[in-house]
């Protein structure tokens, strides 16, 4: 081990071959999946335009720092929490140029948030101030999600109040004569939230029925 080239080439061979085996090989084997046809519709299907825009907002705000978009089957309580009905598999993400799998759950998983929270109005108010929406609901104790009020415009009411204006009450109300309306970014983000649902089955995706004959 006295010579530099020996160390350099040895390290190169080790690092390059583990990369080839554990990163490049899986990508070549399984990283060129195609959409699967379920009842004549290709799944996963493309996102609507506004939701596509919402993906960019999701990335820009770093939502992935607290929220995952992957459901586990054989570990954790993901299914019991109604976060999904089956294991997430690679094919679920093929349309995503930038995937948001995430690695930390300070908040809940969002793979199926479009199912759990189908009401756009709820999302608009929740992004404005999560505590405003959750306070008073059953079992509410705390929420450490940041407020995204910077995605909303506070403006003076000119003429008729906008029909998009948030209904703010009590301590959250703004001064008389003003209203808070969501910006395009907020609406795009909500459209993205509503589009997040895995409502199809894939042949390779394990679900509880397939591995537990008792069910």
């Amino acid at each position: 081990m006295n010579r530099g080239p020996f160390i350099f080439i040895g390290a190169f061979i080790l690092i390059a071959s583990t990369w080839a085996l554990l990163v490049q090989l899986p990508v070549m084997q399984g990283g060129n999946l195609e959409a699967y046809e379920v009842d004549g519709v290709l799944q996963p299907d493309a996102l609507p335009g506004l939701a596509q825009k919402g993906r960019e907002v999701y990335q820009e705000l770093g939502c992935v720092q607290c929220h995952t978009q992957q459901v586990r089957l054989t570990s954790g309580s993901d299914l019991a929490r109604n976060w999904g009905s089956r294991q997430s598999v690679a094919r679920d993400y093929i349309g995503e140029e930038v995937a948001f799998l995430g690695s930390v759950r300070i908040g809940p998983d969002l793979s199926n948030v479009g199912y759990r929270r189908p009401d756009p109005d709820w999302h608009l108010r929740h992004f404005y101030n999560p505590r405003m929406v959750l306070e008073g609901t059953r079992n509410y104790s705390f929420s450490n999600m940041p407020s995204f009020s910077f995605l909303y415009d506070k403006r003076e009411i000119v003429g008729e109040p906008s029909d998009k204006a948030l209904k703010l009450e009590g301590e959250y109300a703004v001064e008389e004569g003003y209203e808070v309306v969501p910006s395009l970014k907020a609406e795009a983000l909500v459209a993205y939230m509503l589009s997040l649902k895995v409502d199809y089955d894939l042949p390779e995706a394990p679900d509880p029925v397939k591995i537990d004959p008792a069910r």
Binding site: G30, L73, Q87, V89, A205, P206
Partner: peptide, 8 residues
């Protein structure tokens, strides 16, 4: 198996 997501 590249299509197998279960380990057990």
């Amino acid at each position: 198996d590249p299509n197998m997501y279960l380990h057990d």
